[in-house]
Measured scan of single mutants.
Amino acid sequence: EDEVKKIVKRLIENGVDDEQIKEIVKRQGVDERIVDKVLKELK
């Protein structure tokens, strides 16, 4: 989960929008619920 957080944070800093972040992270095989949780925490 910490790995996911790092990735998502980097994507947000690069101006990637939420939908794209979800797609990218899902392609890495991460559960969507984890992605949603991380996005909420970082906003």
Rank of each mutant, 00 (worst) to 15 (best):
K6E: 14
E32A: 12
E23Q: 12
E41K: 05
E19F: 10
D17A: 13
V25E: 01
D18A: 12
G15R: 04
L42F: 06
G15K: 05
K37C: 04
V25R: 00
K37I: 07
V16D: 03
I7Q: 08
L11I: 01
K5G: 03
N14M: 15
I24H: 05
V30R: 04
D17G: 13
R10E: 15
N14R: 14
L11G: 01
I34R: 04
K22H: 06
E19G: 08
K5V: 10
K40F: 11
K5L: 09
K6T: 10
I12D: 01
Q28H: 13
Q28P: 02
I12M: 15
L39K: 02
K26G: 11
E32M: 13
V30F: 15
E13Q: 12
R27D: 06
D18K: 09
E23R: 12
D2N: 09
I12A: 05
R10F: 15
V4T: 04
K40Y: 11
V30T: 04
K37N: 06
V25G: 03
V16K: 09
Q28R: 12
I24V: 06
K37S: 06
E32S: 12
V30G: 06
V16Q: 06
E41F: 07
L11P: 00
K22G: 02
D2M: 10
K43M: 09
K26H: 07
D31N: 08
N14V: 09
R27M: 12
L42I: 10
I21N: 00
I7K: 05
I24Y: 09
N14Y: 12
L39G: 00
Q28T: 13
R33E: 12
V16F: 15
Q28D: 06
E1F: 14
N14A: 15
K40D: 09
L42V: 08
R10L: 15
V35H: 01
R27A: 14
Q28A: 13
K22V: 09
K9V: 08
K43G: 09
I21Q: 00
V38D: 00
I7D: 02
R10C: 09
I34Q: 05
I34L: 13
L42K: 02
Q20M: 14
Q28Y: 15
D18G: 07
G15Q: 04
D31E: 10
K26Y: 07
D31C: 03
R27N: 11
E13T: 07
V4R: 01
D17L: 10
E41M: 10
R33H: 12
R27V: 05
L11M: 08
D17C: 11
D31V: 05
E23D: 10
K43Y: 11
V38N: 01
V25Q: 03
D18E: 14
K37Y: 06
K40V: 07
D17F: 06
I7C: 06
V25P: 00
K6C: 05
D18I: 15
G29N: 05
E1T: 09
D36M: 12
V4Q: 01
L11N: 01
R33Y: 13
D18Y: 13
V8H: 00
V4K: 01
N14P: 00
L39V: 03
I12E: 02
E1D: 09
E41Y: 07
R33Q: 12
L11D: 00
K5I: 12
E3G: 07
K5Q: 06
R33G: 10
D31M: 06
D31T: 07
K9A: 12
V16A: 09
E13A: 14
L11F: 04
D2C: 03
D2W: 09
Q20H: 11
V16R: 06
E13R: 11
I21T: 01
V8D: 00
E23N: 10
D18C: 06
